Simulated assay, not measured.
Amino acid sequence: MSRNTVKTGVSVALAATTLLGLAACSDPGASAAGSGTPASSSSSSGVKTFNLSPQQDRVKATVDKAAAALVPDAIKKDGKLTVAVSPFAAPLAVYATDNKTPVGNEVDIAVALAESLGLEAEIVPTAWADWPLGVDSGKYEAVLSNVTVTEERKLKFDFASYRDDKLGFYAAAGSAITKVETAPDVAGKRVIVGSGTNQESILLRWDEENKKNGLKPVEFQYYDDDSASQLALASGRADLTFGPNATAAFKAASDAKTKLVGLVDGGWPLKASIAAATKKDNGFAVAAAAGLNHLIQDGTYARILDRWGLSAEAVKKSEVNPAGLPKK
């Protein structure tokens, strides 16, 4: 998970994994099981049920020969692509109901990317903090784990982008609030945000702008427990939550108790990219971007994001080493 948004992301992720009874850690591999089980379904109440079983029946990808030809020999010699994921935040990656198989958007993208390059994905669960050393040492050939591109990280790793880094404003489903796009939209609002996070920094800047323009200040609310923050929102003691969109979107779709009212770039006012991280200068990032663009062009990519509720974070094109967030 991007460390620019990790504090609120962790609390939401832990709540999701607790709710789903997901735990334990093991290396499950990454072969897709063709069970015919749908990725998700919606009820009349608007609640979306996601398929978190080991049997995923993933969207299949076709090989792009031109992209496959770009894969360095050192990587393709064994026919496998070793990809690290951090299975602790739905819908990005979590353990399935068997408590050992990683499932989620990042896993699906990794499997499809490998297939587009004529390789078999070998998914390796890892703690988020451990991926840099794993890539540097050659243990992982790629990492798909909600990693935000930064200029500092680009000094040590190469990247191929596959999602926009988005933060989301969410209100209670019955709230009269329908739109949050700019600073005036949060004036006088009671907003739950993670302390010390990138989203708090953005909200502080918006609040300062509002106060300079004579608008009401934001009432900042902080909760260590996600259940408490959700209760505050549901009871009307808070107006909005502001945090990583992916996990909040999953929760909103899963219980229909909240609604998305605004998206903000994770690096506001700069755009931030989520990307596959690879070893610096080994050539694989170019192949990865080519494979991802094949998935984008043939519609596989869009179907994967849709099945996990992440269409709002789709990119039109994968880029090698896109502009990263500046050093702080």
Results as ranks from 00 to 15, higher is better:
Ser35Pro: 03
Thr37Cys: 09
Pro54Ala: 07
Lys48Val: 15
Asp98Gln: 00
Val124Lys: 12
Leu113Gly: 06
Val124Ile: 15
Pro87Ala: 01
Ile75Trp: 02
Leu81Arg: 07
Ala121Thr: 01
Thr101Gln: 07
Lys48Asp: 05
Ser44Ala: 15
Leu119Trp: 05
Val63Asn: 03
Ala61Phe: 08
Ser42Gln: 12
Val71Gly: 11
Ala114Tyr: 04
Gly104His: 09
Glu115Val: 04
Lys60Met: 06
Ala121Cys: 08
Gly46Cys: 08
Lys60Pro: 00
Val71Asp: 08
Ala61Pro: 04
Ser42Lys: 14
Pro91Asp: 09
Pro91Ile: 11
Val59Arg: 05
Gly34Arg: 15
Trp128Phe: 14
Lys65Val: 13
Gly46Val: 08
Ser42Phe: 02
Ser43Thr: 01
Ser35Gly: 15
Leu70Thr: 00
Leu119Cys: 09
Asp78Gly: 12
Ser41Gly: 14
Val107Lys: 07
Leu113Asn: 01
Ala121Val: 03
Gly36Val: 07
Trp128Met: 13
Leu119Lys: 08
Val63Ile: 15
Ala84Thr: 09
Asn99Asp: 13
Phe88Val: 14
Ser86Asp: 11
Pro72Val: 13
Ala129Thr: 14
Ala89Ile: 06
Pro125Asn: 12
Val63Thr: 14
Ala89Tyr: 10
Ala121Ser: 09
Glu120Val: 14
Pro72Trp: 11
Ala114Ile: 08
Gly46Phe: 09
Lys77Asn: 13
Leu52Asp: 02
Pro87Asn: 01
Ala90His: 05
Asn51His: 00
Gly118Cys: 10
Ala129His: 11
Ala67Phe: 04
Val83Asn: 05
Leu52Pro: 01
Val47Ala: 12
Ser45Gly: 04
Phe88Lys: 12
Ser41His: 03
Pro91Val: 12
Ile109Tyr: 05
Ala127Gln: 13
Pro72Glu: 10
Gln56His: 00
Val124Asp: 04
Ala68Pro: 00
Gln55Asn: 13
Ala67Cys: 07
Gln56Met: 04
Ala114Ser: 12
Leu81Asp: 03
Ala129Arg: 15
Ala112Pro: 03
Pro87Thr: 00
Lys100Phe: 07
Asp130Phe: 14
Ala61Ser: 10
Val71Arg: 08
Asp108Thr: 03
Pro87His: 02
Val85Gly: 07
Phe50His: 10
Val47Leu: 10
